[in-house]
Design a protein around this nucleic acid. Structure first.
Lengths: 149, 149
DNA sequence: TCCATGATGTAGCATTAGCTACATTTTGCC
DNA sequence: GGCAAAATGTAGCTAATGCTACATCATGGA
């Protein structure tokens, strides 16, 4: 089959929209890990007063080296305090982000559960899905949950 | 506040489960881009008989360089044929993957729309969400859609 | 025909996220 | 107090995903 004219031709689907969606997805990916970390730090802080590197590593399923480097970035971006050989604490910005993430996570899990999805599957899927749920979609989930109640 | 004993203590939430979820999410990320590419290649092939580097770049919102390198990887992994200076075609494995992705994408969009979410938002969110929807959750979405019908 | 332009390919840089291996610091216990 | 073990930090590797800049190929129109 011959290539059609080189001029841009009508796309089946709007290329611009898909490109925009994918660019949005890539932006989300960049902040995903930050969200997972601040959430884990918030949980650990609530449970035991502080978050240590070794605890984060266990919880996040990575080595302590990866935790170290990521925490440096979180510090650079203003989400956590970081003193060498000390535990990690959230800044005000970090706490704000963590609270939003925890709320969103809980909503997504509850929503999936309301569809009859098993607890473990809901948790596994929510961990990936939650970061891509826009405020509008989150509201829709909440609306749906209220109706079911 | 003093750090508690170094021995592992009862976690607020099961660390193992969250670690597993996050590891799953990371695995998904590794295949996400492959899925986006084969889907785009399938669409372009259906529309114009072939997928060219420049079309993919426009559609995916990246430069042609990135497309080139990613296509090499897809070729390495057996999803596409790739001859220099020629268009890209899916292998049987690629077509199979693309079909599954297209179906899943359509289901996720339809499901979000059924919750009253606007078309554009549904598309934007679906692009990020779909990769993290397990077969069980996809079934739940389909079940929900059938009920609504 | 031939050449300008569009398409494709390549070189090399930056960032992020993983890792192993090894060095350093802290701390709990004797 | 001092030492062994745990925790933390650092060096340096791989791989993926972006990019710009430049080189090469192919084709359509003059």
């Amino acid at each position: 089959m011959k290539p059609p004219s080189r001029a841009a031709k009508k796309a089946v689907r709007p290329s611009a929209l898909q490109a925009e969606s994918l660019q949005q997805t890539r932006r989300v990916h960049a902040s995903e890990i930050a969200e997972d970390y601040v959430e884990a730090i918030a949980d650990l802080s609530a449970a035991q007063g502080e978050a240590r590197v070794v605890d984060l590593a266990r919880r996040l399923g990575v080595t302590h080296v990866t935790v170290n480097r990521t925490v440096s970035r979180l510090h650079r971006d203003g989400y956590v305090t970081a003193r060498p050989y000390h535990a990690i604490f959230l800044t005000a910005a970090g706490r704000k982000l963590a609270a939003a993430c925890q709320r969103r996570h809980a909503t997504v899990v509850a929503f999936l559960r309301s569809l009859g999805i098993a607890e473990k599957t809901a948790e596994l899927d929510a961990e990936g899905i939650e970061h891509h749920v826009s405020p509008a979609t989150l509201s829709a989930f909440e609306r749906h949950l209220r109706r079911r109640k």
